[in-house]
Every structure is written in C-alpha cells, then in structure tokens.
Amino acid sequence: MKKRLRVSRVLLYVVLTAISIMFLLPFFYALYTSFLPLQYVDRIVSFDKFTINNYITLFTKFNVGRWYWNTFIMTLITVAGNVILDTMAGYALAKFRFRGRNIIFIIVLASMMVPFQLIITPMYIMIAKINWHNTIAGLTIPFLYSPIYIFMSRQFFITIPREIEEAATIDGLSKAKTFFKIILPISGSVIASIIILNFTTTWNAYLVPSTFVTDRDKFVLVVGLRTVNDMHFARPNLVMAGVVLTTLPVLLLFLRFQKHFVQGIATTGLKV
C-alpha cells in the first residue's frame, strides 16, 4: 500500500515536471533570445556568445524605467478599484434580495459579450472631449470595474454558507458591515484571484494604452517595448528581453498571492 502510494507520488512529480517544461518553453525561448546578439537569433549557440547588451540597451536607449513606473501606477489604481467595487457588486448580486437582481446579473453577463473593440473608438472620443487622453485618469477610471470579476465574486460568494451571515445578523451587524467585517476577511482566495488576474491583464494591456496615449513619456511598458522594432527592422532579441522584463513582476506577484489558495478559510468561517 505504502509503496504504491510512493510510486504514484513519483509519477505525479514526473508528470507535473513534464508539463512545467512544456509550459515554460516560450518563456525559456524569450529568456534565451534576450541574451543573444541579433545575428545569432534562432540559432543554438554556446554560452560565450551571450550578452546582456539587450537589457542595457533597453534601459539606456529606451525609457524603460519610466514605462515601468507608468505601468505600475496604472495597474495599481485599476486593481484597487476592481478589488473593492467588483466584490461589492458581486456580493450584492449573490446575497441580497432586491428588485431587479436577475436583470442586473444578466446585464453583467451581457456586458462581457460586447467586443471591446466596438466601444474603444467612441470611448476614446469621450476621453478626448474631457481631455483625459494622455492622462492616467483616462487609462484607469473607465476600467475600475469589470464584469468578469463581478461575475466571479458573485459565484464565489454564493458558495459561502448562509449561517455565517445569519450569525452576524444576530450579533447586530448591518448587512454592509457584515460584508466588510466578516465576509471580506474570509474571502482571501477570491480577492487573491481578482488581484492576480486583473493585475495580469492590466499590466499586459496593449489596445487601450496604445490608443489613449500618444506621449512617449507616458507610454506603459508593453506599448513602449513595441517601439524597439523599426519600420523595416525586427529586433527579436530586444523584443524578447522586453518580454522577460514584462513577465517577471507578474510572476513575483503571483508567487506572493497564490499563498491565499489554501484550504480551510471558508471552513473556519463555518465553525464561527
């Protein structure tokens, strides 16, 4: 019995590692290419050909530091807005009884079904009218909420046992207080997933920042890094160094917040 268990454990690790290698291929490719001079791109070369010049170029010839900062601010504001507003709305849809609840839920779903490219031009015209183009406000305010995370938090809050809220009501807490004082603290896993997912998409966003911003100093990282290619010139090595620079912060964030995916949080709630 024990032996069989050990064998299956080993097998699990083998499979997990194999998949890991597969999943890491593009990142390895990016990492590898980012250390090559242009002439060796797509060739297998020995380590002595490696150079960190691509990174040096990005930080000296391009405004990468500045772009990092812009991206960071944009992402921070957006994620903060989403975490607060989306969970509030999701909780209301999951746990409150009020007129129009179903309709609102369907509207939330429907809002995800409109191709974003449809509204970006009218949106830009609105942004331009109030002089928000080239500003951080234009990049963040319209995106402080997103239907997917409202949907997501609703689906999670539904699974929270009613007993928890009932206990809170008996203790004399209002509905709003119950949410902020009781529910949010035990919803680490939902909040962590909103932070992780929203951070990733905002950090990597291209369409909106490239349309709303035409000032080089206000570019975000992803947009700025596209400029390493010239009109008639592709520089995969610089592009891939950019990919590495863009990817790493997100992975660090993930590493930090995935810790919230631990069993038992909702259960502790149940025991209250």
């Binding site: 990919v243 863009t246 992975l251 993930f254």
Partner: peptide, 19 residues
C-alpha cells in the same frame, strides 16, 4: 509549480506565438 503553470497566461502573445 503553481507559478510555472500560470506562466503561459502571463507571457506576451508575441513570445507564445513565436515559439
């Protein structure tokens, strides 16, 4: 492992399609 399995969603589509 968790972080690695999240990598494909993070790495830019350019790198992914290139590979």
């Amino acid at each position: 492992f968790r972080t690695i399995y999240y990598v494909p969603y993070v790495v830019s589509t350019i790198a992914v399609t290139t590979v």
